[in-house]
Design a protein around this nucleic acid. Structure first.
Length: 448
DNA sequence: GTCTGTTTACCTCTCG
DNA sequence: CGAGAGGTAAACAGAC
C-alpha cells in the first residue's frame, strides 16, 4: 500500500533548478560525479553520533557538506537496494567505518544495542534509522532546499535516503502525517488555489526549529535493534554474524576505516574535553522550555491547533516560506581551521550585522514570544549558561544542521529582523563549535 | 478511490 | 512511579 506520489511539477522544477544552480555555482563536478563515499548520508551518521566532530573527509571537502544529499534530495536515484541482495548493506567506499570498540565507551550509543555508525541507512533496509519522525521530517525539509515541502516529498526523501522505509510497512507514513499534524514544530502552509496538487506544504516553525535544533525534543528512543520485519526472514538466512554478533555484512572498506581513523585522530581530543566546557555554549544556553509539544493526552479538542498552530504564522523570522530565499547547499572551498582560528582570536564578531545563522543569532529563549538575547543573560544565569546539557539533542541538531542550507551571500530578505534582535558572544559560539564545529563553521560560511 | 490531514487512544521507553 | 517523549493504530473528513 506504499504509494508514493511523484513530485509535483513545481517541485521538480525547483529541484532541477537547484541542481543546475548547484553545479553552476560550485564549479565542481555534478552530483553524480561525486565520490560515492561523499554523497551518502552515512557520514551524517558518523557525524551525528560521534560527538559531532567533523569527519576528516568533511574537513577535506567542506564544500561537500551541502551535497551530501545531492542537489535534489528525493530526486536522487535510489541507492542500491540491498533488500534484494541481502548481505551488502554497505555501499563500498563509503566512510561508514566505526571503531566499534571505541563506541563502547560512548554512552548512549552502545546502549542502543547496535552501532548506528556502522549502518548505512541509505542502503541498509534492515535496521530502522535511529531518528524520530520529527527528525526525519526536519531532515527532509532541510535537504529540500525549499522553505516548504509537501508530504509526498517527505515520503520520497525518507524512502530515498532510508532504505528501511522503502520496505517497511507503510504505516510509517501515517506516523509522519501524525507527526506533522501533532508536532508544533511543523506548520502547514496551504496550497494556493492556483497550485495544482493535493495537500498543502509543510515547513518548520522557526521557533520550534530552534528548539528542535537545540534539543528540546528528545531523540527517538532506540530499541536494541529494529529490524525491518519484512526483511527479517531474509536477513536471518543471509546475514551471518561475526563472533561479536554483528552482521558480517556491516564490514567496512579499508578506505572507510582510514577515514575513520583520521577522523578519530582529529576528534579524540574533543572526546576528552572537560564537559564543563559545554557550559555557556549557545546550545547549552538555550533553555529547554519543555512545553508539551502537542503530545498531551486527552487534550481538549481544538486546544492544540486552534491555539498553538494558529498563533504560528509566517511572521517568524526564520524559515519563513516566502521570506527565506531558497538557499543552496554549502558551496566552495572552505578553510575550517582558519575560520576557527580567527574566531578564537576574536576576529569574528557576532554582533551587528554579521549574517550568522538564525539559530546562532536569534534565540527565542522563551520558546514563544519574549526574546532574550543569550548575550543579555548574566554570565551566571544558570538556566541560560549551564542549562540542561543533557537536553542537547545532538541527533536532531546535527542531523539537521549539516543539511541546513545556508543563505546566499547576496541576499537575505527577511533576515534583518532576526539579525538584529540578539547577539551571541564568541565564547558561546565557539564553545558550540567545539562540539559542533562543522555546524558552527558552516553557518559562518557567508562571513568569508 | 486515493491522498492528505486531524484526532484520539494506547503503547513502550526514558528520566527524574 | 509518574510524567514526558515518541511510536503505532485507527477512525474520520475533506480534497483531488
Amino acid at each position: 500500500m506504499l504509494s508514493l506520489s511523484p513530485l509535483g511539477q513545481e517541485e521538480e522544477a525547483v529541484v532541477a533548478a537547484a541542481a543546475q544552480a548547484e553545479e553552476r555555482d560550485s564549479g565542481t563536478c555534478s552530483f553524480s560525479g561525486l565520490d560515492d563515499s561523499l554523497t551518502s548520508l552515512q557520514w551524517l551518521q558518523e557525524f551525528s553520533i560521534l560527538s559531532a566532530q567533523v569527519p576528516q573527509h568533511v574537513h577535506q571537502h567542506p564544500q561537500l557538506l551541502g551535497q551530501q544529499l545531492g542537489p535534489d534530495g528525493p530526486a536522487s536515484p535510489l541507492a542500491a537496494d540491498p533488500a534484494s541482495s541481502i548481505g551488502t548493506p554497505l555501499t563500498p567506499g563509503r566512510p561508514t567505518a566505526a571503531a566499534y570498540s571505541r563506541m563502547q565507551t560512548l554512552p548512549g550509543i552502545v546502549a542502543h544495542g547496535h552501532c548506528p555508525d556502522e549502518v548505512d541507512y541509505k542502503t541498509n533496509a534492515h535496521i530502522k534509522p535511529p531518528y524520530s519522525y520529527a527528525t526525519l521530517i526536519c531532515m527532509a525539509m532541510q535537504a529540500s532546499k525549499k522553505s516548504k515541502i509537501t508530504l509526498s516529498y517527505i515520503y520520497q526523501w525518507i524512502t530515498d535516503n532510508f532504505c528501511y522505509y522503502r520496505h517497511a510497512d507503510p504505516t510509517w507514513q501515517n506516523s509522519i502525517r501524525h507527526n506533522l499534524s501533532l508536532n508544533k514544530c511543523f506548520i502547514k502552509v496551504p496550497r494556493n488555489k492556483d497550485e495544482p496538487g493535493k495537500g498543502g506544504f509543510w515547513k518548520i516553525d522557526p521557533q520550534y526549529a530552534e528548539r528542535l535544533l537545540s534539543g528540546a525534543y528528545k531523540k527517538r528512543r532506540m530499541p536494541p535493534v529494529q529490524v525491518n520485519p519484512a526483511l527479517q526472514n531474509r536477513l536471518k538466512f543471509n546475514l551471518p554474524t561475526q563472533s561479536t554478533g554483528r552482521p558480517v555484512g556491516l564490514n567496512v572498506s579499508s578506505e572507510s576505516q582510514r577515514l575513520l581513523r583520521e577522523f578519530e585522530e582529529v576528534t579524540e581530543d574533543h572526546q576528552n574535553r572537560d564537559p564543563h566546557l559545554c557550559e555557556g555554549t549557545m546550545l547549552c544556553s538555550w533553555p529547554m522550555v519543555r512545553e508539551r509539544n502537542g503530545y498531551k493526552r486527552k487534550q481538549a479538542v481544538g486546544s492544540r491547533n486552534s491555539i498553538s498552530k494558529m498563533t504560528r504564522h509566517s511572521s517568524s523570522p526564520l524559515f519563513c516560506a516566502e521570506e527565506q530565499r531558497e538557499a543552496g547547499p554549502l558551496k566552495g572551498p572552505f578553510d575550517w581551521d582558519a575560520l576557527v582560528d580567527s574566531a578564537l582570536r576574536g576576529e569574528l564578531s557576532l554582533d551587528g550585522e554579521d549574517p550568522l545563522s538564525p539559530i546562532m543569532k536569534d534565540v527565542d529563549l522563551t520558546g514563544r514570544g519574549a526574546h532574550i538575547s543569550a548575550a543579555d543573560a548574566p554570565a551566571g544565569t544558570p538556566d541560560l549558561r549551564s542549562s540542561d546539557v543533557s537536553d542537547f539533542d545532538e541527533e536532531t541538531f546535527l542531523a539537521t544542521a549539516f543539511l541546513e542550507t545556508p543563505w546566499p551571500e547576496d541576499e537575505n530578505p527577511g533576515r534583518g529582523d532576526f539579525l538584529t534582535s540578539s547577539t551571541v558572544n564568541l565564547d558561546q559560539l565557539f564553545d558550540l563549535g567545539d562540539s559542533l564545529n562543522v555546524d558552527a563553521s558552516s553557518r559562518m560560511e557567508p562571513l568569508l
